[in-house]
């Protein structure tokens, strides 16, 4: 690949990423002050990954995915996870059809393009497992029939970090299946004023479909062509290996704080997310800035911290910061 190829990719990206501005504008009509979350939704959408959102109630998590769904004209489903939810409530079941004297399949709410799994940690493990299996395999088996999920298929699961009583925390193996874990914070004061005024005046913007599913699927193909140099690959691997063997990077102090490092799925997702980020920034190649921009969201749920780290109030976030400040940028 030479410079001409990169320019070709750049041209292609210019063409295929034109919808990003339109989509962002449309979503921002309704979602105010959550630029980071909207950007991460796009990364998940274009990177064919799923997103785990963590934030206190009332930060427009549901509204964001609903708006995105409307802007793309996709099928949106919301599943409120509760302790008495059953796997069949999520994926569907077979029901007896009396006139035909046979069992017919009733598909569950998971058969959609944009799925909001609200408060995923409130449902027991078997329900979480059913959802996460569908997320990973991108197919669901009901009875003796297997159904492929419609594309795009984006699951946005939410977790509330403050109420932990009566919850079933997601096991590490299942959390790993989320491409990104995004922590949402409160909007800025200025943004919140706008939100408040819009609500008081009853000014609810109507979201129109501005992008087609076809465009999204095409953009996904272009994302795959974004060039990633070997030096960037090595940088990603250095970061991932620093989570596993911090002592090799002069971070001996992290050894007692990390119980397990990021999995190979972590490096795959970090590379994919960096490529999507470069695409969103209209670049046909990945630079270290792209890796660093998505690093926290890709790795924060993939690094296990020890009791010692908890006792010292050190989070996976702090560990990632230390790693990024130590690993040499190419």
């Amino acid at each position: 690949m030479d410079r001409v190829d990169i320019e070709e990719i750049n041209e292609k990206i210019k063409e295929e990423s034109a919808f990003i501005d339109l989509l962002t504008l449309e979503v921002n009509k309704v979602i105010i002050g959550q630029k980071h979350m909207v950007e991460r939704l796009l990364i998940g959408l274009l990177g064919n990954g799923h997103i785990l959102l963590e934030g206190v109630p009332g930060l427009a998590k549901t509204l964001a995915i609903n708006t995105l769904s409307k802007a793309i004209n996709g099928k949106f489903s919301r599943i409120q996870f509760t302790p008495d939810l059953l796997p069949s409530d999520v994926i569907g079941t077979t029901v007896y059809n009396m006139p035909k004297n046979e069992f017919s399949i009733k598909k569950g709410p998971i058969f959609g393009n944009f799925i909001l799994a609200d408060e995923i940690n409130r449902a027991p493990a078997k329900v979480q497992s059913a959802l996460l299996e569908a997320m990973q395999e991108r197919q669901v088996t009901i009875g003796d029939e297997t159904f492929a999920m419609e594309q795009p298929f984006l699951v946005l699961a939410t977790q509330n970090p403050v109420e932990q009583e009566g919850t079933y925390p997601l096991p590490e193996a299942q959390v790993d299946r989320f491409m990104l874990k995004t922590v949402i914070d409160y909007p800025k004061q200025e943004d919140e004023r706008t939100i408040m005024r819009n609500n008081l005046n009853g000014q609810y913007e109507i979201v129109k479909p501005v992008v087609t599913m076809k465009q999204i699927l095409k953009a996904r193909e272009v994302v795959k062509t974004v060039y990633m140099d070997e030096k960037i690959e090595n940088y990603i691997l250095d970061i991932i290996f620093a989570t596993r063997f911090p002592e090799r990077f002069g971070l001996e102090n992290l050894n007692p704080l990390i119980s397990f490092g990021a999995s190979p799925r972590g490096s795959i997702n970090l590379a994919t997310a960096a490529k999507v980020y470069a695409f969103i920034k209209r670049r046909g190649y990945v630079i270290p800035e792209d890796v660093r921009a998505v690093c926290h969201d890709v790795l924060r749920h993939r690094i296990g911290i020890t009791y010692e780290a908890e006792a010292e109030d050190v989070s996976s976030e702090d560990i990632i910061n230390q790693i990024l400040n130590k690993v040499e940028v190419p």
Partner: peptide, 10 residues
């Protein structure tokens, strides 16, 4: 330099 290093520019 970034362009040369990461985008095969010459």
């Amino acid at each position: 330099a970034d362009f040369v290093k990461f985008a095969k520019s010459k």
